[in-house]
């Protein structure tokens, strides 16, 4: 495959892992909050996906290139401040160019800081791997997060509002499934999504203790 030759074996493997086999949401259960909360409309999901991907890439660059200088004891705080700084950039960018989306997302933009995908990847991957590989991992996780969010959002917006990206797609007689646009719908759809992907990817269920 072309992509494989282009990236080299190790990077290709990292990409594949992030996008599918070690999908951050389905196999690691990271970043669930925003996957639920911001997936009611496609435009919000895309904005959130782009925001998280940007912060992931920026964090990967910072943490990975500074990994030899960050003291082991203060590393959590360092990651947090790094992540928070880039989240401010995303927040201000959305406020300036997409005020409507920024308004509806409200506190969820700031809550990217506590999105566990960022902290998890910084700690588990960027702090231990060179810049190139970390970048690939950041992009892979960003893509995985974005397509999941957008996928759930498409179902929720089409069935819950009868629209797609604000355009009417359902016939006039369509009765909106309002519940899908509310919180319970988010839980049910993510539950379904986890069921399907975990079965397909063959993730072992956690031992019940």
């Amino acid at each position: 495959m072309n992509l494989r030759r282009l990236l080299g074996k190790e990077r290709y493997k990292t990409l594949l892992k992030g996008v599918w086999t070690e999908h951050p949401i389905s196999s690691m259960c990271l970043g669930i909050c925003s996957a639920l909360a911001v997936s009611n409309k496609v435009e919000n999901a895309i904005a959130m996906g782009a925001g998280v991907t940007f912060v992931l890439i920026a964090t990967a660059v910072m943490v990975s290139s500074l990994r030899k200088m960050i003291p082991a004891r203060g590393r959590m705080i360092t990651y947090m401040v790094t992540i928070a700084s880039f989240v401010i950039v995303v927040d201000k960018f959305l406020k300036a160019y997409f005020p409507v989306i920024s308004e509806t997302m409200g506190p969820y933009v700031g809550l990217i800081i506590t999105n566990c995908i960022l902290m998890g990847r910084a700690e588990a991957f960027y702090a231990r791997n060179p810049l190139g590989l970390s970048l690939v991992d950041a992009v892979a996780n960003g893509i995985a997060y974005s397509y999941t969010l957008t996928g759930i959002a498409v179902v929720r917006e089409v069935l819950g509002f009868g629209t797609l990206l604000g355009m009417r797609v359902m016939p006039a007689g369509w009765e909106n499934w309002v519940v899908l646009s509310l919180a319970p719908g988010a839980f049910f759809l993510l539950g379904l999504f986890l069921w399907i992907t975990r079965t397909l990817a063959g993730v072992e269920p956690p031992r019940e203790g």
């Binding site: 839980f187 986890l194 069921w195 269920p205």
Partner: peptide, 13 residues
């Protein structure tokens, strides 16, 4: 496939 986080989501729903 539903065990663990999946069923928690359904219950919470």
């Amino acid at each position: 496939g539903l065990r663990g986080p999946g069923i928690v989501m359904i219950a919470a729903g």
